[in-house]
């Protein structure tokens, strides 16, 4: 990362952490809940959400759900267990291989061809979402999101899958900022140091799949989104023109994932258009 960009992306960890803890406490309790749960993959994002939720609500008010698929790496599960042990929080392991395999066994026959990695990955992400939302009803708790700003902007996630949650404390932190806060709250070093991976199939890494590094993505996104520099200005600052184009296109192409479904306007007041209330309305 360029030194000046590293500086620009640096956040005050204690202050930011206190704001995020307050966010979780306030936005959970004001809607009448005391408890939260979240998926814990063994990666840095869900680990950070786990630490923040535990700091905010206490270990008795949180619940981690580990949802491996049969091809998930053992080290992911080990890392998730390290978080659970370190925080001393309750957890449940739900193997999602059964429902996912049963689905594709049937579907591959119906369609007459094996599902692509993309379809399989999306199905796994949505299976995990279904599991989390079911457990949240059983547990009387809210689902805490684990998507960071970089992946939300890039659309590197499954709509209604891992992108689904009731509240997301880390959605305005770039990947490099997630690392900073994670270090501060004590996320284990095995998680801090490993290559980010969706772990949907063997040897998958985010950066291999995306075709660029998170550092590059953070630098370009920060300048385009937060500083409002144009594509040309970013290139002038010494970034590869193709890469800048590619990243900006991704943000635009995947914008639909960040929005609720659009609605055809018929009446005088339409949900999402001119029927406007905050989520906190009437709670």
């Amino acid at each position: 990362m360029k030194p000046e960009m590293e500086q620009a992306l640096r956040v005050n960890a204690p202050f930011t952490t206190s704001v995020l803890e307050g966010f979780i406490r306030d936005e959970v309790r004001k809607v009448g809940f005391e408890r939260v749960l979240f998926g814990l993959s063994g990666g840095i994002d869900s680990a950070l959400s786990a630490y923040l939720a535990t700091r905010a609500l206490g270990k008795d008010a949180v619940h981690a759900v580990l949802m491996p698929y049969r091809t998930s790496s053992q080290s992911s599960l080990d890392d998730a267990m390290e978080v659970v042990t370190d925080l001393g929080i309750p957890y449940t392991v739900v193997d999602i291989s059964g429902p996912v395999d049963a689905y594709f066994e049937k579907m591959d026959k119906l369609l007459g061809e094996p599902a692509s990695n993309l379809r399989r990955g999306n199905r796994m992400a949505r299976e995990r979402m279904v599991t989390l939302y079911d457990l949240s009803a059983a547990n009387n708790s809210l689902v805490v999101g684990t998507s960071n700003k970089t992946e939300l902007l890039l659309g590197y996630g499954t709509q209604f899958g891992d992108m689904a949650s009731a509240l997301n404390p880390i959605g305005d932190l770039y990947k490099s900022q997630v690392r900073q806060i994670s270090r501060y709250v004590g996320v284990p070093s095995s998680i801090l140091d490993k290559a980010p991976s969706a772990d949907l199939w063997e040897d998958q890494t985010d950066e291999k799949e995306l075709g660029f590094s998170y550092d590059d993505a953070d630098e370009i996104l920060f300048q385009w989104v937060d500083l409002r520099l144009s594509e040309e200005e970013i290139v002038e600052r010494g970034y590869d023109a193709m890469l800048v184009r590619q990243i900006i296109r991704r943000v635009q192409r995947n914008h639909y994932k960040r929005r609720l479904p659009i609605i055809a306007k018929i009446s005088s007041r339409t949900i999402g258009i001119d029927f406007r209330y905050s989520r906190d309305w009437g709670v």
């Binding site: 500086q7 620009a8 640096r10 956040v11 005050n12 202050f15």
Partner: peptide, 10 residues
């Protein structure tokens, strides 16, 4: 509203 957290105390 708070916005723009940087490497500062506030």
């Amino acid at each position: 509203p708070g916005r723009n957290v940087m490497d500062e105390h506030d």
